[in-house]
């Protein structure tokens, strides 16, 4: 179980780091072309392409799967609704008591 958790953490870390690197590289067209050349020269084109596509597809589905862990993840509007709901529940429960 612990091993599984460590592996999952490691995976998330690698994915996040790769995304950071990709974003940085994409910002600089010359660096982007250089990286592409190096990847091709190393014969890693196909692997790199499939990783890239997977990262792109997964980035959305991960963020879309709503798993609220913090109020910080909410939009200002959703945060306001959350606070209103929390307060209303608290108030009405106190009234019941």
């Amino acid at each position: 179980m612990a091993m599984k958790a460590v592996r999952s953490l490691l995976k998330s870390f690698i994915k996040a780091s790769l995304r950071q690197v990709l974003n940085f590289v994409k910002t600089y067209p010359k660096l982007r072309i250089f990286v592409v050349k190096v990847v091709c020269a190393l014969g890693l084109k196909n692997i790199a392409h499939s990783i890239l596509m997977r990262l792109r597809m997964s980035s959305y589905s991960q963020s879309m799967a709503f798993n609220p862990s913090s109020i910080d993840h909410l939009s200002p509007y959703a945060r306001q609704i959350y606070l209103d709901l929390k307060q209303a529940v608290k108030r009405l429960q106190q009234d019941h008591h």
Partner: peptide, 14 residues
């Protein structure tokens, strides 16, 4: 309702 439930409800409503 747990805090996470309320957040999910809030996002749904928003």
């Amino acid at each position: 309702l747990k805090s996470s439930d309320m957040m999910a409800i809030a996002v749904s409503l928003s």
